[in-house]
Design a protein around this nucleic acid. Structure first.
Lengths: 352, 352
DNA sequence: CTGAAAGCGCTTACAG
DNA sequence: CTGAAAGCGCTTACAG
């Protein structure tokens, strides 16, 4: 049996308006009336209709989740899945549910995000960055609907974004290598069309400059984030005849591919080449040698996104943006730790 | 500017009823009228209000996604994330969006899934199985709302479920070991409270019986699916003094933990102990030796769930259930393939 | 402190 | 083939 606000009103001997006010925590309600109504609600297990409320208030308590642009995989993206997870948890505590747009049905009008948000009367959006962002994201960004970008700089008046400080990602690695005495650093970058990837390359270049390490173009090669491309990239790097002291790969998978190539050449890790990856995937700690890597604070990113979006929706803040510090996870592949886990004193000689 | 059905009607010189009929593809509409209205819609970029429609029709075009019971992680569960991904893709093509319930806000009434589904006028549900299922799942299962369980047998008149054939999971491993000449098979099981885990244990027992292999209680030990528990379990197994010819672990992570323990004892894989895991996580193909494993067909499970739910919602079918075949992925850890990838003739002697 | 009434934007018999 | 009217279940000024 499904009850409406009218039923409850009748059963409690009051008007629907009164019930509505109790539902919405108005304070000018008599104690006795309130108690009586609450009792009826309890007894009947009454639950207000969501769509009726949404229709009347033009508010939905629903947050839209958009995977913008081309993205390798929606849910099973190793980075975003954790971010969304943390986001869901935190925004859930504010009473919002999450609506994932299906792109398939509306393939033609897929881009028309604003219309779709209005259609559902979405209260706010979280937009996950892929490659080749559609133009209509811009439209949404600059609409009246609050949006938070993840790894995607938004500029609308009711928008904000959270990103890992991608400069720091490479800067931390460079610093670490520097302190270990490595000056010849090779780099396997990601897709040169990706904003994130380019920020990291830039960060690497700057950090090396800062430490007075020469940045050599021929030691930068691009992959596609997957293992095979890391293998190929490393083969190419080694084909020059020179062996770099250290390697930074923009993804753990590429780092693992590179390690395979290095081993095939009969070189040792970290003795001949120190390796650091990026992402901290599960496999990183399970392979041999355990892979040092840079980890993004996905929990914090998701949580910040939730809090920022809430503030935006409540009009407590204007557009805002935050950079989150990445963390360097030191395992054995970079040579800073010996197999038994103790710290090792850097013994390398600098320069050729 | 937001248009309503009234605006469109006025601009096209017809009644709202007519517009509504065009929106809903009624066939008794004059060609000219239709064309005129469509034109206005196009020009204005009109999008009907979702909540108004939902209120009037009591249909939402939204599918609820419920993670029932305690589950280690919602989105980043290695198995379910792929299932949901495939589900989303397929159900999206039927025009449905996905609503993920936030459990946090409603912690007290968390269990009251039925109310919440009615509240949103959810058209159907997909329910993901965790441990210790709440009683209210049962209520939902037996309600008028169509539900599909994943790894969760539902019994309602408008419910169905899809599961991997968990008997086959262990049966395939046993058969494989048998053909390699292994008769002494140890097993690291999962949580003894988990239905799935118990089905697999049962399947193992039966299959071994079928092949005339003795099932020894002392060679079954339980873990919690994570790496450390696999390590501990293997230590325990080896502490008996006897070394099994083969090991099946109910998760890849436990298999990797076990491999660590085996290596520590100075034993070789697969020469001394052949190992097969379960899940086919990324790390499985990246470790040394690459881990043989059993893979569930997550794509198919997600797709079937979508099709079955659609049929249930359209009342094209009654309750239904499907078992999906698992697949054995042969790599090097089980001894069937040599390092160079060629097949190896089983050379083991049977028995002690 | 409480209630009558209009309105949110659709759909759906029903009449013509 | 088209339209007038009632209804879906809430909220919100407004009056008292």
């Amino acid at each position: 049996m499904k009850y409406t606000i009218k039923d409850i009103a009748k059963m409690a001997g009051v008007s629907p308006s009164t019930v509505s006010k109790i539902l919405n925590n108005y304070h000018d309600i008599g104690e006795d009336t309130k108690k009586a109504v609450l009792e009826v609600m309890e007894k009947t297990g009454y639950r207000p209709s969501y769509s009726a409320k949404a229709l009347a208030t033009k508010k939905s308590n629903i947050i839209g989740v958009i995977y913008a642009g081309k993205i390798n995989a929606d849910f099973n993206h190793p980075f975003f899945v954790d971010v969304i997870n943390a986001f869901k948890k935190n925004i859930g505590e504010f009473g919002y549910d999450l609506l994932f747009f299906s792109n398939e049905k509306f393939a033609s009008s897929k881009g028309d995000y604003l219309s779709r948000c209005r259609h559902y009367q979405i209260d706010g959006c979280i937009i996950i960055n892929g490659d080749d962002i559609e133009a209509s994201i811009d439209e949404l960004d600059h609409s009246e609907i609050p949006c938070i970008g993840v790894d995607l700089p938004l500029s609308g008046k009711t928008s904000g974004y959270v990103t890992t400080d991608n400069y720091q990602v490479s800067a931390k690695v460079v610093e670490h290598f520097y302190l270990l005495g490595c000056r010849e650093i090779a780099y396997i970058a990601g897709n040169p069309k990706s904003v994130v990837s380019n920020l990291r390359t830039e960060g690497l270049e700057r950090a090396m400059q800062k430490f007075g390490i020469p940045f050599r173009e021929e030691w930068v090669v691009h992959g596609d984030y997957f293992e095979e491309s890391g293998y190929e990239a490393m083969k190419k790097l080694l084909s020059h005849g020179e062996v770099p002291q250290a390697l930074f790969a923009a993804s753990d998978l590429m780092a693992l591919g590179a390690i395979r190539a290095i081993k095939e050449e009969g070189l040792r890790i970290p003795e001949d080449i120190a390796v650091v990856g990026c992402d901290d995937i599960d496999a990183a700690r399970l392979v041999d040698p355990p892979l040092s890597t840079v980890k993004q604070d996905k929990e914090k990113i998701g949580k910040l996104a939730a809090y920022m979006l809430r503030d935006l929706m409540d009009k407590r803040t204007d557009s805002c943006s935050i950079l989150v510090e990445p963390e360097l996870i030191v395992r054995q592949s970079c040579g800073a730790k010996s197999r038994d886990g103790s710290n090792r004193v850097p013994v390398r000689q600098t320069g050729p």
